[in-house]
Simulated assay, not measured.
Amino acid sequence: MKVKANRIRKWKRAASRGVTLVEVLIVLAIMAIIAGGATALVFPQLKKSRVKSAVLSAGVIKTAAQQYQQLEMAGSSTCPTLKDLIDGKQIDAKKTDDPWGTPFKITCEGDEITVISAGADRKEGTPDDVKDDFKDADIKRVGDL
């Protein structure tokens, strides 16, 4: 009987002793590996979603610029600016920046209006610039840069 009582006491002590530092460190290491893997999977999707958002916003601004030219300017060849669109209540003043915090740029060549975002590097004329007429292949290309 005495042997059984000693075993029971040992099990109770083992069960109540808590968690060792090594066990905590192992759990933290496992959690860090999982978080690192999740980040590696999510980050490229975040870049592509920003590019998609920029394309959609540029399309909205392009539509507003076309409407502004037709309504306000009565077919004038003057290219509207973001300030013109805001003053003409075509777009909201809070929606003139791309996902990277840079204002969109409106350019006009003849009757064609193009809306451009400088992209993640915030510099115009670089490969990561985003235009309103991007296709899925262009979005993937810029998102992978």
Results as ranks from 00 to 15, higher is better:
residue 106 I to K: 07
residue 108 C to N: 06
residue 125 G to M: 00
residue 133 D to I: 14
residue 104 F to C: 09
residue 121 D to M: 01
residue 132 D to F: 10
residue 112 E to S: 06
residue 111 D to C: 01
residue 101 G to M: 04
residue 133 D to V: 10
residue 110 G to I: 03
residue 107 T to Y: 09
residue 123 K to G: 00
residue 129 D to F: 01
residue 123 K to C: 02
residue 110 G to E: 13
residue 116 I to K: 11
residue 112 E to H: 07
residue 114 T to Q: 15
residue 129 D to N: 14
residue 103 P to K: 13
residue 125 G to P: 03
residue 130 V to I: 14
residue 115 V to R: 11
residue 109 E to G: 10
residue 116 I to P: 02
residue 102 T to L: 03
residue 128 D to V: 11
residue 125 G to F: 01
residue 128 D to A: 07
residue 120 A to M: 14
residue 115 V to F: 08
residue 128 D to H: 05
residue 124 E to R: 03
residue 104 F to P: 09
residue 123 K to N: 04
residue 122 R to T: 08
residue 119 G to N: 07
residue 112 E to V: 09
residue 117 S to N: 02
residue 116 I to Q: 12
residue 127 P to H: 04
residue 110 G to W: 13
residue 106 I to H: 08
residue 124 E to D: 07
residue 108 C to Y: 11
residue 130 V to M: 05
residue 118 A to F: 09
residue 120 A to W: 12
residue 101 G to H: 06
residue 102 T to H: 09
residue 130 V to T: 06
residue 116 I to A: 08
residue 110 G to F: 03
residue 125 G to R: 00
residue 117 S to V: 04
residue 107 T to H: 03
residue 119 G to M: 05
residue 132 D to R: 12
residue 114 T to Y: 04
residue 126 T to P: 05
residue 111 D to K: 15
residue 104 F to T: 12
residue 115 V to N: 11
residue 115 V to A: 13
residue 103 P to F: 05
residue 129 D to L: 05
residue 104 F to L: 09
residue 118 A to Y: 08
residue 123 K to I: 05
residue 105 K to F: 00
residue 108 C to G: 04
residue 109 E to P: 05
residue 131 K to D: 13
residue 111 D to M: 08
residue 114 T to L: 14
residue 104 F to N: 11
residue 106 I to W: 04
residue 126 T to I: 04
residue 129 D to W: 01
residue 131 K to F: 15
residue 123 K to Y: 00
residue 110 G to R: 09
residue 131 K to N: 15
residue 114 T to G: 06
residue 123 K to Q: 08
residue 129 D to K: 00
residue 102 T to K: 12
residue 114 T to V: 13
residue 126 T to V: 11
residue 110 G to H: 11
residue 118 A to V: 14
residue 127 P to T: 04
residue 108 C to K: 12
residue 106 I to N: 12
residue 114 T to F: 03
residue 132 D to V: 06
residue 102 T to I: 11
residue 111 D to H: 10
